[in-house]
Amino acid sequence: MKNFLTALLVFLVWSFFGLWLFSILDPVHQNTNPPEEVASTSTDTVEIDEGPITDESLEPIEGDSLNRLENEVEPFDSHEQHLGLKAITPKNDVIFLFNQGIGFHKNSSDIILNEEVKDFKYKLNTYMISHPNEELHICSLYSASEDIHTPNWGFQRGQKVKELLLETGMAREKIVIKPIIREINFDENGRHENGISFSFSPLDEARIAEAALKLPEDKTIYPKLVNNDIFVNKDLQDLLAEVKEAMAANPNLIVEVVGHTDNVGNANDNYLVGLKHARQVRWYLVTKGKLDRKKIIARSEGESKSIASNKTERGRLLNRRIEIKYSSS
């Protein structure tokens, strides 16, 4: 028993000695600092900017990630600077993607076609022929930084593209213009290189039926007069495009061209002048637009329905006008 107690006492003494020695030599214990000191002296401190995230703060998307992103976004929702002229199906399959796009200048309805993209209208027509139950959407950009114009520049540019498509024989009622307002980065010459894209959608038969029944709004134009004869100007060209589209959408449409004058001179003479101008506009619409002459009527109101005072030059200018009135037969 005495030997057992001696051995136990020796074991306990050495155990306490070992624990004391380990606590002195423990490197973790020696190097542990308070948390506040580590945070204040670390060279890896991350500063958090709580301001708004801008495009400049984001990592650029490159390689396959960029390709996947382009394929997932419809053309009228992207219009990225690096994209060319693109057309997609209702299932987002790409019909074509040109490196170049259709461009335009700021505050202008004219479109710019590069040589590479000139066949786009034939490719779209070929697709539409083989998919008669679909309609084409022309997605056309314009910017809030451009001059305010009615209709907006996006619609006017889309109309120019539509006219090119109609030359291929595409059905007018299956082409829809969709103006899209976006921030546009024009170059130093006021030019943007990629403002048009195309997408096909299932044919909206309800829209077609409604368009056929809806009459266009009456319109007033001020033609260019030289020696009391009408010369072709942009207003007249725009009118021709509008009348052609309206009559194509509604075969029962009747277009009335009404001539108005100021009150300078004889009332009977003014009636004849108004009739002459109305007939000249009618002749232009019929011959240039190849429209049914029986559906376009010319008549005169002379000086009888002035809209401004004839006592001022500006008032007389406003009274010398052509009115276009639509009705259905």
Results as ranks from 00 to 15, higher is better:
M1W: 04
F4G: 10
S15A: 15
S15P: 00
F17I: 14
V28I: 06
N33L: 13
A39W: 04
D44L: 15
T45P: 00
T45Q: 12
E50T: 13
T54R: 10
D55P: 00
L58A: 08
P60Q: 07
E62L: 14
N67V: 12
R68A: 13
E72I: 14
E72Q: 12
V73H: 02
A87N: 04
I88K: 06
K91F: 04
V94P: 00
V94H: 04
I95T: 03
L97K: 12
F98L: 03
F98C: 03
S108M: 02
S108W: 02
I112K: 13
L113I: 09
L113C: 07
E115P: 00
E116K: 02
D119G: 06
Y127G: 01
S130N: 11
C139Q: 15
L141Q: 10
Y142E: 02
Y142C: 10
D147I: 14
T150D: 13
W153H: 02
W153P: 01
Q156M: 13
R157M: 03
R157S: 04
K160I: 03
L164Q: 11
T168S: 07
R172Y: 12
K174E: 04
V176H: 03
K178F: 01
I181E: 12
R182F: 12
E183D: 14
R191C: 03
H192G: 09
G195M: 08
S197E: 05
F198E: 03
L203G: 01
D204W: 09
R207N: 11
A209S: 12
A211W: 02
T220C: 02
I221E: 06
Y222T: 08
D229S: 05
D229T: 09
I230R: 06
F231R: 06
K234F: 03
D235L: 07
L236F: 05
A241Q: 05
K244A: 09
M247W: 04
M247Y: 01
M247H: 09
D262R: 06
V264P: 01
N266Q: 13
D269F: 08
N270F: 10
L275F: 04
W283R: 15
V286Y: 09
V286C: 06
T287K: 15
T287R: 14
T287L: 14
G289C: 07
K290D: 12
N310M: 04
T312D: 00
G315Y: 03
K325A: 11
Y326R: 03
Y326T: 06
S327W: 02
S329E: 11
